[in-house]
Design a protein around this nucleic acid. Structure first.
Lengths: 214, 214, 214, 214
DNA sequence: TATGAATGAGACTTCATTCAT
DNA sequence: AATGAATGAAGTCTCATTCAT
C-alpha cells in the first residue's frame, strides 16, 4: 500500500478498525505523547491496550508504521475545513472583514487542537526525526493550505484591510501570534487558567493593528 | 553535587573539561540534535567522539546526566545578558524607545541562537520528557527573565509607548512574533534564504503598530 | 505477585514451567553452585541452557529473581515433611524413643540433602548477601520448624528421655551434630567415602549419651 | 613471590605495610564481608579506603591477590597457638582432664573469632570458589592441626577419658558442637544475646557425656 | 609512591520483531 | 485474528586493570 493509498483509506475508514486496533491506537497515542516515540516500547503499548504484543505487529508491520497510522489521519483532518471546495464562496459571503475571518479561523483551530492535542504533540515531537512526516506535511498540508492562505491574504489586501507586506510575511506573523497563544496555553503553562475570550480578543486587536495599512 | 552547585560550576569552568570530555559533549550535541536523545546510543556518541564508551560514563554517570550537562549551561548563557546587574542603567540610557530595545533584543537573541542552535533544538525536543529540564528552566530562566521583562514593559507603558495590556500579554505577543520568525528560519524552512534585515524591520513595524497605544 | 503468592505457586506448579524455563533453572543451579551467584553471568547460563539470553529475562525479570526462583521452592520442600498436619500422630505412634525419632529425622534429611545438594549450597552461599533469603527462611522455615521442634523436644523431655536443658539448646546441639556430619561429607571432604550407617550410629549414640538425663 | 614466600612474609611483616595499604586492607575486609568478594568493586574499596583506584593495583596486582592478602595471614594466626612447639608440654602439665583442654580450646577459639570475625566470614564465603584458598587451608592448617588433634584425642583416650571411637570422629563431633555454637552466635542469630558462660558449660557437659567411655 | 583518566571487555537488561500454536 | 514464547541485536552501564603524569 503506497502512502497515497493509505492516505485515501484513512479518510474514510475509521470504521474499518478492529476493536483491538482502536485500543492499540489509543494506548499508543497516550504513551507516545507522554514519553515520546523512541522512548516508548511496544510491550508497554500492548499492556496498556490489553493486547498481546504480537497483535500490534499483526496490524502494523513496524513500530514506525504505528506512529504514522496515528499522525497521518490527524494531518488529513487538519486540512479538511481549509481546502473545502467552496471555501471561497463562504469567504466572500461570510467574512467581509479580515477580523471575522481571523475569529472564525481561531475558533476553528482551537476546536481542532482540543480534539487532537495529543496527536499534535506527537507530530511536533517527531517531525524533526522522520522525513516521511515532514514530506507528508509539506505535500498534504503545507502546500495546499499555504496556497489557500496566500489567496485569502491577497483578497483582504486588495480590500485595503491589510498592509502591503508579502503575503508570506502576513501569514507568518498571524500564525506565530495564534500558535504562540495555543502553545502557551496547551503546552507551556498548562497549569494556568486562561480567559480565552479575552485573550483571543487581545490577539485579534493586536493582529488587526499590527497588520493594518498604516 | 546539587543542581545549584552544578549550575554555579558551569558558569566558570568550561576550562575544567578534559579534552575527551569536550569531544564527548560535542559529539553528543551533534547526534542528540540530529536524532533525538532517546534514539541516540552511547556507543554512537563514543564512536563519533573517538573515545571508549566507558569514558563517557566515567564523566557522566548516566546518559541523562550527559544530556543535562549539555543543556544546562546553555540555559545559563541564555539568561546572562538579560539579568545583568546594570541592565537598568543601560535601559534608560540607551533605549529611549521601545523600538530600540526591541531591535537590540532581537539582534542579541539572534546571535545567541546562531551560536547555540543545536543545543536549543535539543532543549526544545527534550523539555516535555524530562521534568528536571522544565524545572531548571522555570527556576533559572523563567522566573528571572520574566520578572525583568515585566519591569521593562511597564517602563515603556509608563512612557506611553505601549498599549495598556497586561505586561504578560505584551511579552507573549512579542515573544511569539520573534520566536515565530526564528523557528521559521532555523527550524522549519531551513532551505530558504532570509533577508534578515528586511524581515526584522517588518517584525518591528508589526510589533510597534500592534502594541501601540491606539 | 507477592512473596506469599509466589510461595503458594511454587508448591503446585513445577508443571507450569516451560521446557526452556526448566533448562534455564537447571543450568543456573549448576553454575550458581559451582561459581557463586555474583560470579555467574547470564550469558553463561543462557549458553549452558541452550537458550537465548533474552529468554532468561522473559521468565525472570532480573538475575536475582532467577536466584530466588531456584532457592525458594527448595525451602518449601524442606519444611514439607516436618510441618505435616498429622506429624503429631505419627510421632506418638511410631517414635516411642527419641532415638527412633532421631534416626528417622536423619534419614529424611539425608535424602533431602542428596536430592537438593546444589540448591542448598547456593542457599548457604547467598543467604548472607540477600536479606530476602534470610527473611524468607526465617518466616517460612525458621519459625514453623523451630516451634515444631520445641514441641518434640519437650515431648521427650517429659518422657524423661532427654536432659532438662532449654529445648533451644537441645535443638542446637542436635542440629550441629547432624549438620556437622553432612557438611563434612558433602562439602568439606567430598573426596572421602563415608560409611553412612556406621557414622550415623556413632552420631546417634553420641547424641543420646550427650543429651541423656544424667 | 611464591605462595610459600608470601606466607613467610605475612608472619612477620604487618609492620611493612604502608599506611595506605592498611587502609585498603581494612576497607576491603569490611566490604568483602558485607557483600562478598565477587560483588565488591575495586572502585568501592578505593573510595572507602580514601585512596585512588590505581593505588590498590600498585600494591596488589589483582583483586584476587588482595583477597588472598586478607585471608592468608588470618589462616596463619589461626594455627599459631595450636602448633606451638611446646604445646605437648603444656598439654601434659596443664590439662589433666579433657574437660580442661576443651575449656581452654573453646576460650581460645572464641577470642580468635572475635578478633577475626570478618575475615573468617570472608574465608568461609570464598573457599568454595578459590582452589588456592582450599589448598592453602589444607596445607597450612588442615594437616598440621588435624595431626595435632589426633595426638591429643588419642592421649585422652589412652587415659580412659574418651570413648574408643576413631579420633577423626571425636574431632568431628567436637568441632561440630563448638562451631555450631559459634556459627549460631556470630552468624545466624546475631541479634540475640548469649550467656557465653552458661552455653559453654552446657556444651562441655554435652561433649563430656557424649564422648565418655560408656 | 600515588593518582585518576582512560580503556574495552563484558555485565545485565530491553527491545522490536517473528512464528508456532 | 490473536497469542505470547522466543530471539538476538543492541542498549546502558560497570568493572578490573593500565598508564601517563
Amino acid at each position: 500500500m503506497t502512502e497515497e493509498q493509505r492516505f485515501e483509506e484513512m479518510l474514510n475508514n475509521e470504521a474499518s478498525l478492529t476493536d483491538k486496533q482502536k485500543k492499540i491506537l489509543l494506548a499508543a497515542t497516550e504513551i507516545f505523547a507522554e514519553k515520546g516515540f523512541a522512548a516508548t516500547s511496544t510491550n508497554e503499548i500492548a499492556k496498556k491496550a490489553g493486547v498481546a504484543e504480537g497483535t500490534i505487529f499483526r496490524h502494523y508491520k513496524t513500530k514506525k508504521e504505528l506512529l504514522l497510522s496515528i499522525v497521518t489521519p490527524m494531518m488529513l483532518k487538519m486540512i479538511g475545513p481549509i481546502i473545502l471546495k467552496d471555501f471561497n464562496k463562504v469567504l466572500n459571503k461570510d467574512f467581509d472583514h479580515f477580523e471575522d475571518f481571523l475569529r472564525a479561523m481561531i475558533a476553528n483551530r482551537k476546536e481542532f487542537l482540543e480534539k487532537n492535542l495529543k496527536v499534535v504533540k506527537i507530530f511536533l515531537q517527531e517531525v524533526p526525526f522522520h522525513d516521511e512526516l515532514k514530506d507528508q506535511f509539506i505535500e498534504h498540508v503545507g502546500k495546499q493550505v499555504y496556497e489557500r492562505f496566500v489567496q485569502i491574504v491577497t483578497h483582504y489586501q486588495k480590500k485595503g484591510q491589510l498592509a502591503d507586506m508579502p503575503p508570506t510575511t502576513v501569514i507568518r506573523l498571524t500564525a506565530s501570534t495564534i500558535l504562540g497563544y495555543f502553545a502557551t496555553k496547551y503546552i507551556i503553562a498548562t497549569d494556568q487558567t486562561w480567559d480565552d475570550e479575552k485573550e483571543i480578543d487581545g490577539m485579534i486587536q493586536f493582529l488587526l493593528k499590527g497588520l493594518s495599512r498604516q
